[in-house]
């Protein structure tokens, strides 16, 4: 049972990671990066590392995408 969960989550993390790389526009990439972060923290949880899962959830799904979006907004605003 545990192996199935790990295999499914590892596959999803791999797919999501590929999706982040394949996303062309940076603002959409911030969203796929957030999804990737959620899946990664689920994987950490399944691997019995809740501390790391919590760090990943807080940093990877909220903090980093927010910084990316703000940076994009600054760059786009500067062009006008």
């Amino acid at each position: 049972m545990n192996d199935v969960v790990l295999i499914v989550l590892l596959t999803l993390v791999g797919a999501a990671g590929t999706a982040v790389v394949m996303t062309n526009s940076p603002e959409r990439q911030a969203v796929t990066l957030g999804m990737f972060g959620v899946l990664l923290s689920l994987l950490f949880l399944a691997l019995q590392a809740p501390d790391v899962a919590l760090s990943q959830l807080a940093v990877g799904t909220a903090f980093v995408p927010l910084m990316v979006m703000l940076t994009i907004r600054k760059i786009r605003g500067g062009r006008q």
Partner: peptide
């Protein structure tokens, strides 16, 4: 620290206007 860091990002994105290029 995170609040300070994000505050600088917000200042750049929302408060300041100018042409960085």
């Amino acid at each position: 620290g995170v609040v300070v860091l994000l505050a600088h990002f917000f200042e750049q994105a929302i408060v300041l206007r100018g042409n960085p290029q």
